[in-house]
Nucleic acid binder design. Structure first.
Lengths: 135, 135
DNA sequence: TGTACACCCTGTAGGAACTACAGACTCAAT
DNA sequence: ATTGAGTCTGTAGTTCCTACAGGGTGTACA
């Protein structure tokens, strides 16, 4: 590895918690820029790539599609030059994020109730399903 | 349709917001019980199926895998007889749900800041990526 | 009664987002 | 110079859907 702040895909995988194969897949899918290469053809990464990959991982875990994440990353990269466009895309995602938070809160409350009741040994009728019937 | 509280897969799809093909897929995958059939072989559903499907849809949207949802549904169905087991599984999911809420909150704050700044016409340096670097 | 026409059936093949090899090459340490 | 872990490309498999094709069902209306 030529420089101390440059590292291999294995190290990137370890630091980001993203599978090596998945990293290469994200590169093919255009979510990560093609990295520099060592003389022997090894991919060379930097800290900024760890940050970006962590973001992708978290966003995926929260149910965003790769397409949505591409949009969010474009926001971060400020590829959409127009402030108006940044505003609009941001607002759309904001609405979605808030809806997800609401639903998770509801799920949280219900799970907490179940867990507490179960700790007491009294299993309540399960309200998990009903909670999502409406919203 | 034999009875008024019994309906076809098309109606179920409409009421739950889940694609017809996906409903059949969930049945194959064992997330939905095999429904009753009309004399001609049509699937017959009831309101309880709408509830269950809505739950699956929401949970998927929140990033849970079908396997995790199976677990949650088992909790709801109380297939896991032991209260201790219900407690443990519930607690695991509760921890996960709370972590998701934390991350979404962070994302919400950042998006809100960006959107507000953009409404003023001043584009800030983007903190979206950094937000997920640590947790 | 028959005949449209929308709906449903099974089965299979595709897409998205990974994941897991195989077979060959690289790199660092000895 | 050699060994062994790590990486390369390419391809094939998995999960979770999604979209037909080709055929049967249900009902409404003439």
């Amino acid at each position: 590895m030529p420089a101390p702040d440059v590292f291999s895909i294995g190290v990137l995988s370890e630091r980001s918690g993203v599978n090596i194969e998945t990293i290469r897949y994200y590169e093919r899918a255009g979510l990560l820029q093609k990295p520099a290469r060592s003389p022997g053809g090894y991919r060379l990464y930097r800290t900024v790539d760890v940050t970006r990959l962590c973001f992708i991982r978290r966003a995926r875990d929260l149910g965003f599609s790769l397409d949505e994440i591409r949009h969010l990353l474009d926001l971060a990269d400020q590829k959409s030059r127009s402030c108006r466009r940044v505003h609009d895309i941001g607002l759309t995602h904001l609405t979605e994020v808030r809806a997800k938070i609401r639903r998770l809160r509801r799920m949280e409350g219900i799970l907490a109730t179940m867990v507490k009741a179960c700790a007491n040994g009294t299993m309540p009728a399960c309200p998990l399903l009903e909670a999502f019937a409406s919203a």
